[in-house]
Design a binder for these strands. Structure first.
Lengths: 224, 224
DNA sequence: AAAAAGTTAGACTCATCAGTCTGGTTTGAT
DNA sequence: ATCAAACCAGACTGATGAGTCTAACTTTTT
């Protein structure tokens, strides 16, 4: 069986600028996935490391070999999940390019996709975990904010700026416009999805997207 | 020392339609306040009942006499805090009356007050607690949503409807308008206040309020 | 083939903490 | 004045769970 070790490849990996880890990579990833799952389901304090190990199909000692302690495990699990979520968000934002069509349709499409990301089960779980342990581990916020949401906001602002430059929108401050747009997109979801405990239909997500874009275009549309 | 007992006044209180509780009311309230404080500071699982008792200046047995177990204590503490927060929010909404002046100024004033409520330390703590224990105790959400935020939204929708009827706003669906307005007011706060870990200046709150009302009036102002 | 690192199952330690109990004191009702 | 309920301090129980350890087994390196 072909197995990749991280530590033994550390020289090669460091050359690529990647961090070196202890243990086998496949185990590491299984543990991270299981940890996020269990922490999300039961909460950090209620979750047992034994439980995580069982769900990952791994011995408890292996978990400790990889991550040292429970808190580190939480951090890494959250960071990994945030990275995943960010990738999906960025993919949605990348569709925001001026193809000459109606900017309303374009924004509604991208808005809908962003809402889908936001309403992903894992995405809700991530925010819940983050919120829950914020008082406890304040540095978590910085990791996620700098490493995830700020990047998405930045990308979105860039795209809006280009649309504005092309005369499709009337925006003076792209950052402020993004702030308003994402508030309009995500704000209504909190209550409607009952903070992640209720599933939204695609129709309802579309409805939120069109309402958000409608209001946004009243304020920032070029024919406003 | 004059002390009010709930149980001994149960006949009188039932006549007034109020729930009867075990134990002395002053102790009960001290415990609730301390419990919220401690739960907010350390998280539900990390908080010890001994700690709550100490902070309330009360024996542990008294806590159990009043609330039976830790989970009930959390529920009641959250409910009490939500009730408090709701009262403040409703007071802000009540200022939304058409006095003949500029509706923009009016909305900005009320928006600013709502933002102040939202940014209150206790308010952030309440949302954190709620978010944290949501997976664990899903019924909490219903309590707070029905008993608190829905009431505020309802009141706000009523006021907006009156302004629309008076021709100061152009609103077809007040509920949808409230959804958008509160998204615009609160959405930007999450990131700016770093989910309650950073204090906002009054100036920054004002800025968010004017931006929100600006966008809102583009969409729903009578001269839009 | 031997060494080195990783993994495994499960036993084990040790601290923490919810909830109970006891025995005695304070407080308000009657 | 008397009684019952509420209170107190503090000891106690029992469960839970983080982190360690051992001894055998597997995989990769050399």
């Amino acid at each position: 069986m072909e197995v990749v070790y991280a530590v033994r490849m550390s020289a090669a990996m460091r050359r690529k600028g990647q961090a070196a880890h202890r243990g086998r990579l496949d185990k590491r990833q299984a543990i991270l996935a299981a940890a996020f799952e269990v922490f999300a389901r039961r909460g950090y304090a209620q979750a047992g490391v034994d439980e995580v190990a069982a769900e990952a199909g791994v011995a408890k000692a292996t978990v400790y070999n990889h991550f040292g302690d429970k808190e580190t495990l939480l951090r890494e699990a959250i960071a990994a999940s945030a990275e995943e979520a960010t990738a999906k968000n960025l993919a949605a934002v990348e569709r925001l390019v001026d193809t000459g069509g109606d900017p309303r349709e374009l924004l509604e499409d991208v808005g809908f996709r962003l809402i889908q990301c936001y309403c992903d089960e894992q995405s809700w779980a991530l925010r819940r975990l983050l919120y829950a342990e914020l008082a406890h581990l304040p540095d978590l916020l910085e990791i996620v904010q700098v490493h995830a949401s700020a990047r998405v906001q930045q990308a979105l602002a860039d795209r809006l700026a280009r649309l504005a430059l092309a005369g499709r929108l009337r925006i003076s401050d792209p950052d402020s416009a993004v702030e308003q747009l994402s508030a309009l997109l995500t704000g209504p979801l909190e209550a409607r999805a009952a903070w992640g405990t209720r599933r939204l239909s695609a129709a309802e997500m579309r409805q939120v997207a069109t309402a958000a874009v409608g209001t946004f275009l009243h304020a920032f549309g070029s024919r406003a």
